[in-house]
Design a protein around this nucleic acid. Structure first.
Lengths: 341, 341
DNA sequence: TCTAAAATTGAAAACGGTTTGGTTCTTTGT
DNA sequence: ACAAAGAACCAAACCGTTTTCAATTTTAGA
């Protein structure tokens, strides 16, 4: 059913019908009601592509998906979805071909030029992130999930990784731990740097020298969690506590400790960062996992919200949110005992 | 840069330019080369919205995302992305408001009417799935990931859940297990029914009566895995083996067994279904997990491929793929010993 | 060399809406 | 009662392509 046809049925001009449905004020309330009723009854809805062409709006927010099937991704998107379901806006997932640098820039460039999205969400930014510079230069509205030190105005939402890890580490130190290992996320991303800073600060405040032998980084997988933890624990002077980057990493750390006959919470303490997944909860691990916690889903919801604000004209300069992170203490952390021999 | 303007720059009519770029045969190769060079140099690319309006194509495949942040989802999408990155097709994620039945139908109806997607992928179908009937009725191309018994022609791709679980169960029986528990997925979905059938068949062939007290179903979370396994193991006549629906379920089962001092692979055997996640591998669990394995990512890639075929005219009736599932035996399965007292 | 057929190219009409710039019909103020 | 302002509506232009149909140029055949 096309507008022209529909308008004829209602006995009005296309102009008036269009205005009635779009909520313009210059149409009387009685006609508006009549039009809306008829639209519902006859099943008329404007052709999206025509609307988009005319208005220049794409009606979608773009999210570039990396190759590594990040398990955070689904949660974040579910969160976005929660906010966007009421709007006339969908989520466009853009696959990233290669982790190749140039290609990625090309991808963003083409995405902007193709006008398929009204805004873009940038994930895991680096301190000096080219994507941010590019999007700013191209004039595409965007929101950064995470933070960048780049000198370009941009909207962002991030969790306070530094404070979270500093607090977690301090807590371990307060428990008497002196040799603390850190398994961080992929190097390069700002969040990993922030976490490292938080870690180092906590050590420094308590006069502990960080040991590069106890610091590692890589993807958030149980595999790496295990490998790093195991190799640390097999060192001559092993750590008594771990700060782990993710739930999956923590699973690996648990496994490594167990494989060496160490009891978590007594022989070895563990704190991990928990993005809150419905299918794997820190509370349920054995022993339950102490964690710095921040809901990835909530972040998705809020990011969607902020992007909508951005699109309705709010300045990116006003949109900066730094979320505090909870520290939930459970059974995986305990006082440092005598080093197990 | 608009077509008209660009055409003028190249010294050709918009018609010819459009044809040159779309690969039509009636334009000479020399002009095509010239146009393509100029397009690259001047950075011209057609306005997507205009193209979509004119051609009626949306250039996107729709995937409806349920509320439960399924961890499978990201893998499947990553797989789709792998195939679609080369095409001019993106993935549109449509958030589902409520798990409410009517609402879901409304959602699909509106999605089709809005012409935002060229095709839809339907997940976790039920034997008599209304969505399939609706999409068929509305004439929207779609592919079902999973299977439905509904009497409506449709393209589908599924893994052989029944055979997989039957084989897994048979293997446990061969090892001497007689009391085998099953923790299945959400009731209602065909895949859960198929798995149950496979389970029952294996028992029946060996003359074992299925015990409803040892069968449960629910979301794929570690939480439910733990709860069900724990309650089963605490029964007077506990199971000696488990068939678990997912990796997360298996984590819960492991935990439950450990919490009761049972050793997996000796006191209790476990086989789970593994969708192959980069961040949590069956091989790395302790003890390593025997599993029925099928790559969710590969399914995503193939589904994307099949949808493209569908869109280029292949009949849905020809598109039926049933993937065999591997059974990988590892340490979590062993001969049934004497019942631990 | 001339003509019919084939290969290229272009002009203009869609595609289905939104929005500008009137036009007509009511109100309101005096 | 009359002009001016306001309310409600409409005709037509436009968004940026693709595609039909027709015109022009080349090529091939005799």
């Amino acid at each position: 059913m096309k507008l022209k046809e529909f308008a004829k049925q209602v006995g009005l001009s296309p102009t008036t019908v269009s205005r009635a449905l779009s909520g313009y004020p210059e149409v009387s309330e009685t006609t508006r009601a009549r039009v809306e009723e008829a639209a519902a009854r006859l099943g008329y809805s404007p052709n999206v592509n025509a609307v988009r062409l005319k208005t220049g709006r794409a009606g979608a927010i773009g999210v570039v998906m990396g190759r590594a099937g990040e398990f955070h991704f689904a949660e974040f998107m579910a969160g976005m979805a929660e906010r966007l379901v009421a709007e006339e806006t969908d989520i466009l997932v853009i696959p990233m071909a290669d982790p190749n640098q140039d290609d990625e820039m090309q991808l963003y460039r083409r995405l902007v030029e193709s006008r398929r999205v009204d805004a873009i969400i940038v994930h895991s930014p680096k301190p000096n992130d080219e994507r941010i510079a590019l999007l700013h230069e191209l004039g595409m509205p965007f929101l950064v999930h995470g933070r960048s030190a780049i000198d370009v105005p941009h909207a962002w939402l991030d969790i306070d990784n530094e404070a979270a890890i500093q607090r977690a580490t301090s807590h371990l130190i307060d428990l008497g731990h002196r040799r603390i290992a850190m398994i961080n996320g992929r190097p390069g991303a700002t969040y990993a740097l922030h976490r490292e800073t938080g870690f180092r600060k906590a050590l420094q405040i308590h006069g502990i020298e960080p040991d590069p032998q106890l610091m590692a980084s890589g993807n958030f997988t149980d595999e790496l969690g295990f490998r790093f933890a195991r190799s640390f624990l097999e060192q001559p002077n092993p750590p008594t506590a771990f700060v782990a980057g993710s739930m999956m990493t923590a699973l690996g750390v648990y496994r490594a400790a167990r494989s060496l006959g160490l009891q978590i919470g007594r022989d070895v303490s563990v704190i991990a960062h928990d993005d809150v997944f419905p299918y794997l909860t820190a509370d349920n691990m054995v022993p339950s996992l102490s964690a710095t916690r921040s809901s990835m889903r909530a972040a998705g919801t809020r990011c969607a919200d902020l992007v909508l604000q951005l699109l309705s004209g709010r300045s990116p300069l006003e949109i900066h949110e730094l979320w505090p992170v909870e520290l939930i203490l459970r059974e995986s952390t305990g006082p440092a005992g005598q080093s197990p021999s």
